[in-house]
């Protein structure tokens, strides 16, 4: 899906976050258009996950503003932002380990989709939707199993399925391919590309450059809490500052 013209989906101005004396993010400006596939890269500790945490409401940013679909997100906590359409997957998968895979995706359906809609989904509709979400990531046959029975790539897929169950407009996939083999990375990329085709704008936070380059239509680079590049992927990685950050002086 190509980025749509018109008002931005997400608009961030001058975002800053500190942990005591440590400046994790400073003066971050970011605009994301509907339908975009944005790659977000940077060395470890550059502030990628902190930025996602601030945008999704897990952390509170001290400075700057965040507007999503024109709505100011100030004061909204994580579950309220999820209900608006901002979803995320976690760098380390965080499944609900005591529940079946079906219940893992049932939670967002009950608490986000049903909370958003005037007419709540019936139990039968929810069951059907759970099955549908799991079959999208080839986990339908394991719907009654627990997350402990899953492989690493299946765990990542469950993480994505649970995020998608919130029916998001914007999805942050935080290192969804970390620790996976080449073929498994291809599987996750295929899932993400399909989700984008279905209309979900995706921000991919990733270290695996081949995956980021093949997926992204735009690339943003963070170093030490500052944005040093933002543009078409090929241009962004040739930026001298980016080369310096990754390859050294």
């Amino acid at each position: 899906m190509t980025a749509e013209a018109g008002p931005p989906l997400l608009e961030v101005r001058g975002l800053g976050k500190r942990f005591g004396g440590f400046v994790a993010l400073e003066g971050i400006d970011l605009t994301i258009a509907k339908g975009e596939r944005l790659g977000l890269i940077g060395p470890n500790g550059s502030g990628k996950s902190t930025l996602v945490n601030c945008l999704t409401g897990t952390l509170h940013n001290e400075t700057g503003s965040i507007h999503f679909e024109g709505k100011d997100l100030r004061g909204l906590i994580a579950h309220e932002r999820t209900r608006l359409g901002l979803a995320r997957s976690f760098q380390l998968p965080k499944p609900f380990h005591s529940m079946s895979l079906a219940d893992n995706v049932r939670i967002p359906l009950l608490y986000t989709v049903n909370a958003r809609q005037r007419h709540a989904l019936s139990d039968a509709q929810i069951d059907e939707r759970c099955q549908e979400l799991l079959s999208h990531v080839n986990l339908a046959d394991k719907a009654r199993r627990r997350p402990r029975d899953l492989t690493q790539v299946e765990m990542r897929k469950l993480e994505l399925a649970r995020a998608v169950a919130t029916q998001p407009t914007l999805l942050f996939a935080d290192e969804a391919m970390a620790g996976l083999s080449h073929s498994e990375i291809e599987e996750i990329l295929a899932v993400l590309l399909r989700l984008n085709e279905e209309g979900i704008t995706i921000v991919l936070i990733e270290h695996i450059m081949s995956a980021v380059m093949s997926f992204s239509t735009r690339l943003m680079v963070l170093v030490a809490g500052h944005k040093i590049a933002d543009g078409p992927p090929q241009e962004a990685i040739r930026n001298p500052e980016v080369e310096r950050a990754y390859l050294g002086e």
């Binding site: 999704t56 897990t58 994580a78 999820t82 976690f90 499944p95 609900f96 529940m99 967002p108 169950a165």
Partner: peptide, 24 residues
């Protein structure tokens, strides 16, 4: 549904919040 929400908090509070559960 409330019980399932409480269980999600027990399993992982951050993930529960990210799934739309009003944890507090």
């Amino acid at each position: 549904r409330f019980g399932l929400g409480l269980n999600s908090i027990r399993d992982d509070e951050l993930a529960a919040e990210a799934s739309g559960v009003p944890t507090l």
